[in-house]
Amino acid sequence: MKSLEELKAIRDKAKNSVHVRQEGNDCIRVVVGMATCGIAAGARPVLNAFTEEVAKRNLNNVAVTQTGCIGICQYEPVVEIFTPDGQKTTYVKMTPEKAARVVADHLVNGNVVSEYTIGANAK
C-alpha cells in the first residue's frame, strides 16, 4: 500500500527535473466550468482528462484551472482555452475523449478543433 514515504522520492525527482512549470504570460490556460451545471453535465471527468493528457505529454506551459458558471449551462461541460496570443476559444459539450483531441490538436499543434467550439454548436 502507498505510504507518504514514497512521496519523498517523487519530490526529489521533481526537484531534480530540468522542467520547471512556467507560470505567466507564455502559459496556456485551460479553464473548466465547475459550477453545479458543469459538474452535473460531466465536468469532473473532463477536468481529470485534461490533467492526465497534459501530464502524459509533459506540457509544462499548460495550467488547468476552474471557474464557476459562465451562464451557458445548456452547453456544459464548457472549457475555455486562453492562449498567450490573447485568443480565447470556448469548447462546449465536452467529453474526456474530446478533451484528449483538444490537447493534441489545439494545445500541442495550435489548431483549434472548430467542430467542438461554441460557434459550431450554437443554434
Binding site: 512521496l7 526537484k15 501530464a55
Partner: peptide, 15 residues
C-alpha cells in the same frame, strides 16, 4: 513533505 514542489504537479496528483 513536498518542500515547495507543487501539489498539483502531475506525478504528485497520480500519487
Amino acid at each position: 513533505i513536498l518542500e515547495g514542489v507543487p501539489i498539483n504537479s502531475p506525478d504528485v496528483l497520480l500519487f
